[in-house]
């Protein structure tokens, strides 16, 4: 489903939020202690809320620009909705980074992934508040408050676990070894991001990369952990080339809409 680049960018931001929110929601009822179950569910809710705002924005633009060329059986144009975008696109149309679609692993891997992503989202949204797309700017402003809390929460957990017991430290080292190669993609501008950054709509990732590096280094240091090498990074998600995990995630998430097409829920 080809879309104009500005919409592709919005979908990229939305897909990141939705997929990570979905992954976090898998912990509900299975967290290491009741209080943390509540905390991570809050984060999942925030992310899904961000995704909804972004999808709704993309849908409005798509409808206004008559992007959907498909016609329904009665000849009317398919109206794009947040649910259409979340539930009826296949994996190759999703633009999320690979980092967020990975399986949760243990609590250590979950909080480390959250920390990497929230640090990125924090600096991203801080810049996005100045976007020439006023709706994006408003969404960024609103989301920044939530993400500030996500960053604090996840950073503290990384430190607690990195500098906790021998077992927790070795689990964090393992998690770091698995996740580090997915962090590069966060700052690799895709084709659609480059043009839009020049227009002041998208964030210039080069600008925020050093801020992310600095914050991550600080926290990892306190956690007695060392950043990985930047030799080689996994990539592809921003262009719709995903890991094998996304297919299963979408199969589960989209099942009802696919099995009972065209229904209200």
């Amino acid at each position: 489903m080809p879309v104009p680049v500005n919409i592709e960018y919005i979908l990229h931001l939305a897909d990141n939020a939705l997929v990570l929110g979905h992954r976090n929601s898998e912990w509900t009822g299975h967290g290491p202690i009741l209080e943390q179950d509540i905390a991570l569910s809050n984060i999942a809710l925030d992310l899904i809320g961000q995704a909804r705002n972004l999808y709704q924005h993309a849908a409005a633009l798509m409808n206004a620009g008559e992007v959907m060329t498909e016609r329904r059986a009665d000849g009317a144009r398919t109206e794009v909705t947040e649910d259409y975008l979340a539930y009826l696109r296949d994996g190759w149309d999703f633009r999320n980074c690979l980092l967020v679609e990975l399986p949760n692993g243990d609590w250590g891997m979950t909080v480390l992934r959250q920390f990497f992503f929230s640090t990125y989202q924090y600096f991203l949204y801080r810049e996005l508040r100045h976007s020439q797309d006023s709706e994006l700017a408003a969404i960024a402003e609103k989301s920044l408050k939530e993400v500030t809390y996500h960053l604090r929460w996840s950073g503290e957990w990384v430190i607690r676990l990195g500098d906790g017991t021998d077992e927790s430290h070795s689990r964090m080292e393992k998690a770091l070894g698995q996740l580090w190669k997915y962090t590069g993609e966060l700052f690799e501008p895709s084709g659609y991001e480059q043009g839009l950054a020049a227009e002041g709509i998208a964030v210039d990732l080069h600008k925020i990369r050093p801020l992310w590096d600095q914050r991550v280094e600080e926290v990892l240091k306190q956690a007695q952990l060392t950043p990985g090498s930047n030799e080689w990074m996994q990539t592809g998600g921003k262009h719709g080339k995903h890991t094998e995990h996304l297919g299963y995630l979408l199969a589960e998430m989209q099942f009802l809409q696919r099995a009972y097409p065209g229904c209200e829920w």
């Binding site: 209080e35 943390q36 509540i38 905390a39 809050n42 604090r152 929460w153 503290e156």
Partner: peptide, 9 residues
């Protein structure tokens, strides 16, 4: 953590 848990709960 207590403060954050309180905020969340």
């Amino acid at each position: 953590m207590a403060i954050e848990n309180a905020r969340d709960a």
